[in-house]
Each structure stands twice: as C-alpha cells, then as structure tokens.
C-alpha cells in the first residue's frame, strides 16, 4: 500500500542554543493513521512533535535545520504563515490546559479568533459537533456555561481535544495526552483516538508502550535525539529490527 505521506520529515536537526536535541530525523507519517512516538524521557520525542506545528518557535534559542513538509509544503519556509499552520495542525498537551472560561467558550475560542463561523447558530453547531466528536457532549450538554475548571481531569483533557478539533485541523498532535489521567479516563481517551483516526492524521507521544501498542498503526522509537526505528506497530513490537528497540520494548532499560 503506497500512500502519499501527510507529513514528510527529512534531515531534521533541532537545537536549543548550542545543544542539539534532534539529530538527522527522517520520517514519513501517513494520513488517517495513528503514529505513536515512544522512547525514554529526554529522547527528543516531545521536541519532535512540537516542531510539527512550530510550537518551538516561541522558545528562545530554538533552531531548526532540515525540512518538514506537510502535503509537500515545507512548514519552515519563510512564506509559511505560522498562525495558519497551527490552525491546520491541532495540538493536545500533556497536562490539560483549559482556559478559565466556560466550557462553551473554551471550544469556541479557536473558532472565534480565527473567525471561522459567521453566525451564532453556526458557532453553536460547531461547538456541539466538536464536543460530540470528543465524546464529551453527553456529559456537559446541560452545563455548557459552567466553568471548564469544574470538570474532572479526564473531562478537561477531552475538552482540550474538542477545542483542538473545533477548528477542523487536518493533523492532531497529542503530547502524552493521558499521562496525568486515571485508567478509566485514559481508556476513554484511547477509544476516542481510535474513532478520530478516520478523519484526522494523528501523532501521539507516549511513554506508555502498551498504550502505543493499543492505539497506533505505526510506532517510531526515539533514543537520545535520534530516530532508531519506525515500523508498523505490530511489527515493531513483535519483531524489531534494531537491538536498541528490542532492549527498550522488553524493558531492559529506561
């Protein structure tokens, strides 16, 4: 099955000041699949995912070499509009970060700043659709105007997913989205990820190998800033090509 990659990373080096945190990364990410990034903490997987929507731009001293193309367009090209890029590439963070506003206003935030709806009804419809897509609608439909901070941790994270989905991104990046959640909330997020992949390209960072095995189609293993191996998930976990990968997934280190 040969597909045009949604994201194509070629020769990516990433520096914080003089310190190189990513070294010559080459990776193709296919559309409508879940790609998991695994590896010990500090291996560069978070930096990598944050370079896919240029979130690292706001970190002083960050520098990029090489190219990352989304739909064949280099996102680090000077002509690229970061604001527009981030609208196309949504992101969900490790710790849920709802704004101290109502549930409704949280989901509506991106729609409002990007001016994506033209009427109040349309806005309401989009918010509802996003909450439904994030499997949160049934739990909050009666209290859309209450503060988002009153939700449980798992609900807050699904709210952040709804918020990201509302602006209709093509790609959704998730940086350890379930690491701060209990097992039941984690399970809900995982089910959600599974449902979402028919409509989005998903890249997820996780420190949890079982989670990677459960939710992803493709897994990439990072180690010390390098991409060691990337393969179909069932293959990588059962028959890794690299010794390093095998050591890691069998828990022989880190």
């Amino acid at each position: 099955m040969i597909l045009t990659p949604k994201i194509e990373v070629a020769g990516l080096n990433f520096y914080y000041g003089a310190h190189r945190v990513l070294e010559d990364i080459n990776l193709r990410i296919q559309p409508n699949q879940v790609t998991a990034l695994i590896g010990p903490s500090g291996c560069g997987k978070s930096t990598f995912i944050r370079s896919l929507n240029r979130m690292n731009d706001i970190v002083p001293g960050a520098r990029v070499e090489g190219s990352i193309c989304i739909d064949k367009q280099d996102i680090y090209a000077p002509s690229v509009d970061v604001v527009n890029l981030r609208r196309r590439v949504g992101m969900v963070f490790q710790k849920s970060n709802p704004f101290p506003k109502s549930i409704f206003d949280n989901v509506a935030y991106g729609l409002r700043i990007n001016g994506m709806t033209s009427s109040r009804e349309e806005l309401r419809g989009r918010v509802e659709a996003s909450l439904k897509a994030a499997a949160l609608w049934d739990e909050v439909r009666d209290r859309l105007q209450t503060s988002a901070l009153a939700l449980s941790g798992g609900q807050q994270q699904r709210l952040c997913i709804a918020r990201a989905l509302a602006i209709e991104p093509e790609i959704v990046l998730m940086d350890e989205p379930a690491s701060a959640l209990d097992p039941i909330a984690t399970q809900k997020i995982e089910e959600l990820i599974y449902q979402l992949k028919s409509r989005y390209t998903i890249v997820i960072v996780t420190h949890n190998m079982q989670q990677a095995a459960r939710v992803s189609d493709v897994t990439a293993f990072f180690w010390l800033g390098r991409l060691v191996e990337c393969d179909r998930t069932n293959k990588l976990f059962t028959a890794p090509k690299e010794k390093l990968t095998e050591d890691y997934i069998t828990g022989r280190f880190g």
């Binding site: 979130m55 706001i58 604001v83 609208r87 963070f93 704004f99 991106g110 990201a164 602006i167």
Partner: peptide, 14 residues
C-alpha cells in the same frame, strides 16, 4: 502557566 499561552498558540492565536 506557559500551558495557557501554548494552548492559545496551538489554536492559531497570534
């Protein structure tokens, strides 16, 4: 928290 600004940036905020 930096997460607040990042949350906004990630949604395409200026």
């Amino acid at each position: 928290p930096a997460a607040q600004r990042e949350g906004a940036y990630a949604l395409g905020a200026t």
